Simulated assay, not measured.
Amino acid sequence: MSSLLTSVLVLLLVILEGLKTTGASCDCSALTCRCEGLSLTSIPQNLPTSITSLHVEYNNLTSLHMQDFLRYRNLSSLFLPDNRLFTIGSRAFYHLTNLTSIDLRWNKLTCLQTDTFVGLGSLRALNIDYNDIKSIEEGTFRECPRLVHLLLGSNRLASISPGSFTGLNQLELLDLFSNQITYIQPDTFSNLPQLKHLYLYQNGITHIHPDTFSHVSQLQLLSLFSNKIAEIQSGTFTDLPKLEELDLDFNHITNIQAGAFSNLPRLEYLGLGHNQMEILPLTICHELSSVPTLILNNNPWQCDCRIVSLNLHTQICGSCSPEIVNQITCTNPGGFQGQKLRDINVTVLNCTELGRPNSATGQQGHCPYSYVFNLLLSVILMET
């Protein structure tokens, strides 16, 4: 009797496990089925065909194929995060012509084929954050002409070819944060005429070509913090009439060329903090004086005679915003470490690096009064 009972219990367990696989444990309403955390290895095939939203999060799916969705042609949203997806078969979503959003976060996808998203003419949002994608083939998203939001953050992309986003004429948000991108080719974003938000932070970008953003005229937000950019060349962020926020914090910037930030009439925020700038050129000060919020903290400012002209222009002519000078805290020389530039008497600034002797003592180490006078005179003549 006990052996018979054991056999019955085993049979019941097998049946219950089978019910999980077929989706009998999913919680369904008229238009939505939720199948989260059921250890599913495939898409359930006994759900109502009328559903428009399907949640299959926290399961054990490893692949997707066209036949998985043949029954569910009314789907408008599909949620598949936190599975074990390695591959998406050819034309897997082909019959989901009404689909407007797909969530594929936290899977193990390594590549996207050019026919992966065929048939998704209505798709508006695609989230593939937190996967292992190493490359994007040219034309991968060509079949998604209505895509507005594309999220590819926290993958393993090392480069992006100019044809990666071909056909996305309505794309407004592109998120590429926390990849391994070191260089962006100049024409990468040229075919995204409606792009407004671009996130490239936490990559390894070392250089930005001046033409990289020249065709993205609708851009409003550009995030490049936590990269390895060392220099901003003239024209890099020029003629972006709608740009409101530009974040370059936590880079390795030592030099900014004149004209790097010209013609940015709507710029409200510029982050240049936590870089390696020792001197802020007067030309850049002029370009940035109208920016309401400018972050310059945590740079190794060198408070010697090279920075005198910046302070004098502010104090005497007002041609450089006081808010800019107020943020400059000296790192060197040691005697001025921690002091605000605005509080330092320009006549005692250390000029050892320039090799200018003190006119009174004949020794190096102080900015001579004659030098300050000449600077004052040059500033006055310049402004008149």
Results as ranks from 00 to 15, higher is better:
L376V: 00
M382K: 15
I160Q: 05
D103E: 15
L264G: 01
R105F: 01
I205V: 10
Q327I: 00
P368Y: 00
I128V: 14
L195H: 02
D82P: 05
L267H: 04
Q180F: 02
Y183I: 06
Q180E: 09
K134V: 12
E137D: 08
K242D: 15
S135Q: 14
T384Q: 15
V325C: 00
T97C: 09
N155S: 10
F93W: 10
S77N: 12
S370N: 04
V118Q: 14
Q337L: 03
C317K: 09
L310T: 04
I316H: 12
H215D: 10
H209C: 06
L200Y: 02
L96P: 13
E138G: 13
W106Q: 05
L70D: 13
G204L: 12
Y58I: 00
G167C: 13
M66H: 12
A260I: 02
E36V: 00
L80Q: 07
V348H: 09
T100K: 13
H209G: 05
S161Q: 10
L381V: 10
C144V: 15
L375M: 14
V56F: 01
Y130I: 12
L272G: 03
G23N: 03
A125Q: 09
Q337K: 13
T236I: 04
V325R: 07
Q339I: 01
N46T: 06
N345H: 02
N127P: 04
K340N: 04
Q194H: 07
I232S: 12
L151P: 02
E137F: 05
Q327S: 06
I380K: 14
L246N: 08
Q218R: 15
T140E: 12
N263P: 06
L75H: 07
D27K: 10
G18Q: 11
R105D: 06
T52L: 10
S234H: 08
V372Y: 07
G334N: 15
L19H: 13
E268A: 01
A92T: 11
G18K: 09
M382P: 04
L123N: 08
T110C: 14
H95L: 06
L376S: 01
L264V: 00
F225A: 05
N169L: 15
R306F: 00
E245V: 03
Q185R: 11
K228Q: 15
D175Y: 06
N332Q: 13
L78V: 14
S289Q: 11
L47S: 06
S321L: 00
I43D: 07
D249G: 05
Q302L: 01
F141Q: 05
R91V: 08
V8S: 11
F117N: 11
P48E: 03
E383K: 11
N107M: 12
T236F: 01
M1D: 15
Y369G: 01
L99E: 00
C33R: 08
S76Y: 01
T110P: 08
N191W: 06
T21L: 11
R84D: 12
L38M: 13
I88F: 06
K196T: 09
N46M: 02
M1P: 09
I344G: 09
L112M: 11
G163S: 04
S101W: 04
L104E: 00
Y369Q: 04
K340H: 05
H95Q: 10
